[in-house]
Design a binder for these strands. Structure first.
Lengths: 330, 330
DNA sequence: CTGTTAGCGCTTTCAA
DNA sequence: TTGAAAGCGCTAACAG
């Protein structure tokens, strides 16, 4: 085993003081070119890799951005993370990403763990129950950006969709296409985005003079399997609807599988696009948006606040749009 | 702005020495319960959050696992990351995740950036051109695990699929179903997994006495759009095949879209499952595997090596299996 | 079981 | 432009 070279080793090898070596390797311009050259050669020869922990400790600045999301294996969240990564990289920062599985307890301990790294900021899909913690961190000037979901009782930067409006116009579009009998299948109510989506759909139905049937909540974790089970119960129930409003991508996937399996003529209104939506045999009304852009926007807010901590908290809305697809196979 | 409390602050507040505070907060058992209580109360009151950078510096141990993958927004890689996260969490470690976009240059600078954090280990989908760097890190006893792709010229822990065998049996299955005219559409050859998959498919065809048509390489980045374009060129070409072998999930999605759009009776053989594969109107032969498990396996190897650096490098193969699906809508 | 002291590798401060 | 010295917050080593 070879010991990792330190800045001291580099300085000694180059025959300069440690400070000169530090200057060269952190890109300070005012260094004699001859010395600079020597230092760079020494660093390369020793395979020097700066110790960021040490640098952080002294300077108080780390080079990491923390991110806490619900589920890294869900394409929505991983795309969000990819967007944050785009901007973090542009600023020369690394991303620490954690999945909270949406439980307040896990989220709470992840906040602790991530903050222990002293990241320059935190991007989080907040869960109810961690507000106090977030407030405490925000008070210490750590920029925190809430993304997708809204925190309660704390005024920080946020980036969300217009859940209510998007859902309303998605359902309204399906009504225009002639659908009359809607059922909403919703992911668990612990997701704060679900409420406005369900409400928006109901508004559109009421406005069209259509009945609002009881929302079917997916039981269990936010997976395609549980959603499919819920979809079967709806499709096989006493009154099969002619359209199902799916409150997110995971629900939509489960519903899509069930609809094809049952060969049902049931249109899908889906908040979030999903893979192969275009191949569905039934009409699909996608409430579409740019998820990666949402991640980028959140990270951009974070770095803006880092530049100027005095900025008033911003509340960004990412636009949604309606896209008609599916129905190709009939 | 409030200054973050340090261990010293906690110790003073609790009226004990800093070392006692340290012991309590890092869970050492041998502490007087009365003092323990005082310390815990003080820590909570001051909203103490340990500074991991300082701890790392002193102890030499960080609590992060580094991961460098090609594309976080690709469900395959994000699921891999989720699997690594599962195990990392079990060991109380955080995950730093970076997307290299598959370019050696970016991967190389990411390795530097990640290693500067002194993670306990690195899990990477290696790109040709970064081997020397990986060797240098492995020499310093940092556990490195290559996942999905194989590194060249360096003997470290690896976790891969049996790409050749999986592809062979996938294509052989399609042959058994009566398909005779195959075209392979492959993601860019910079992915080292593609070669064995293409070769395995060709072997199965040869063994069945069927012709091996030239492989169609997807031009450009590994996206559904580029794959779909390639698929159109195949479907609209002079001799439409009756089966397409897709070398990964992204290619499969593009091909699936094109097949449905053209209403073609073309079976899909896909390395990797993909969302809604079950809803395809054509037969789909999925060369299936547990991606999350692959991530878990990689992380498990990493922690095993951390426990015992003397272990001989292990080379794990994650099993693939054949699953028939699709064809439901006919 | 508890406390003291030193020092991890780096950057900041200040002096030359 | 360069260098010396101090110290960031924590834990290891050792003494009590």
């Amino acid at each position: 085993m070879i010991r990792r070279a330190t800045l001291n080793d580099v300085a000694r090898e180059a025959g300069v003081s440690i400070k000169t070596a530090s200057r060269v390797l952190s890109g300070v311009e005012t260094v004699n070119p001859t010395l600079r050259d020597k230092v760079q050669r020494a660093a390369a020869g020793l395979d020097y890799r700066p110790n960021r922990a040490a640098a952080m400790m002294r300077s108080g600045r780390s080079d990491m951005v923390g991110m806490i999301i619900r589920d890294l294996s869900n394409p929505f969240y991983s795309t969000l993370a990819a967007g944050v990564g785009d901007i973090a990289e542009r600023h020369g920062r690394l991303l620490i990403t954690c999945s909270s599985e949406g439980t307040p307890h896990r989220q709470s301990s992840l906040i602790e763990a991530v903050m222990s790294q002293r990241p320059v900021g935190l991007i989080i899909t907040p869960t109810t129950g961690t507000d106090r913690q977030l407030i405490s961190e925000a008070d210490r000037r750590t920029p925190i950006v809430a993304v997708d979901e809204l925190p309660t009782g704390i005024n920080i930067d946020t980036v969300t969709f217009d859940n209510s409006r998007g859902s309303r116009s998605g359902v309204a579009t399906a009504v225009k296409l002639g659908r009359r009998n809607f059922v909403t299948i919703s992911a668990g109510p612990q997701l704060t985005t679900m409420g406005p989506r369900v409400a928006g759909a109901a508004e559109a139905l009421s406005a069209a003079g259509l009945p609002v049937r009881p929302t079917v909540d997916v039981i269990g974790p936010n997976t395609t399997d549980t959603a499919r089970t819920a979809a079967y119960s709806v499709l096989d129930g006493p009154e099969r609807p002619d359209a199902i409003f799916c409150t997110n991508n995971v629900v939509a996937l489960g519903v899509a599988e069930a609809i094809v399996e049952r060969q049902a003529d049931v249109a899908i209104v889906s908040f979030d696009d999903f893979s192969l939506s275009s191949t569905m045999p039934v009409p699909v009304i996608v409430i579409d948006h740019d998820t990666r852009q949402m991640g980028r926007a959140a990270a951009t807010l974070l770095f803006a606040r880092l530049d100027d901590p005095q900025l008033a908290p911003q509340h960004l809305r990412i636009a949604t749009s309606i896209r008609l697809t599916g129905g190709l196979q009939r």
